[in-house]
Nucleic acid binder design. Structure first.
Lengths: 135, 135
DNA sequence: GGCTCATTTCGTCATTCTCCGAAATATTGT
DNA sequence: ACAATATTTCGGAGAATGACGAAATGAGCC
């Protein structure tokens, strides 16, 4: 009773209960993204974005994948959360900010290679594949 | 963009992202309860319980009903949250604390009338009807 | 090694949350 | 009106959270 067995569920909910993190999750529902791409869409300091991503990851809602200098995050549906996440998507349906972020993200992904993450001389993030059905 | 359109969804999630409030919601899924009954199960100060209930109510997840000196709270599913709440229930499935609270609550409801809320001379809370399907 | 850049971690400050007892409010009964 | 009881609101102390720049870390390239 001390560490309270509701903790895992609460931690997951806490991870979602923040505007930035909720927007991030909505973005990652569409495609995997690296930190600087997310920063571009949200318009917050890189360290802040990184911390939010870490929070979602700690809650086991995201997983990361390193590619060169970039770290890509993508959605993860741990056991027992599938139905919950489906419910969450319905909660996000029709939220203007979410739709707007989606457009901003598409814009970012359309930018000439090297203008998001600085024009690094090397393995530019050339892609970010679709990962889930848009709706 | 200033007040952020994700606010309503975030507020709802924030309301849930707390052990006490999550436990309360799980309890109220079964039946409506008055403040002192909830206090009995959670074992926190009355004022604390009242504040948590108020929080869930502000998030539009509960509605209240006054009966004599007692205020009964019950679950409410505002538009667009039905699917989300269904997902939430699945998240609560199998959490020991939730099951334990359920038992403790049954115990409280079984107590001889007047031993939970003090033996008031009058319209004792004689009932607390089933309000939703257990699972 | 040294340079560059993406990301994470750290230090700090401001804000918000959470809890509880005390005081205020509401309702009923005498 | 007064007493009794359930609930809400208030005040404040302590903890947790969130934002950002600065410093540290990691990867690739010369």
């Amino acid at each position: 009773m001390s560490p309270s067995t509701v903790r895992p569920a609460v931690d997951r909910l806490k991870a979602l209960a923040h505007p930035a993190r909720l927007r991030i999750l909505a973005l990652l529902r569409e495609e995997e993204l690296c930190v600087c791409q997310v920063r571009e869409v949200l318009g917050m300091a890189t360290s802040t974005v990184s911390e939010h991503l870490a929070g979602l990851r700690r809650a086991d809602l995201l997983e990361e994948r390193r590619e060169g200098r970039w770290v890509y995050y993508r959605l993860k549906s741990p056991d027992g959360t599938k139905a919950f996440l489906d419910g969450l998507w319905s909660l996000l349906e029709g939220i203007p900010q979410v739709a707007q972020d989606r457009r901003a993200c598409a814009e970012v992904l359309r930018r000439p290679v090297g203008t998001v993450c600085r024009p690094g001389p090397q393995p530019r993030p050339e892609r970010a594949r679709r990962a889930a059905a848009p709706r």
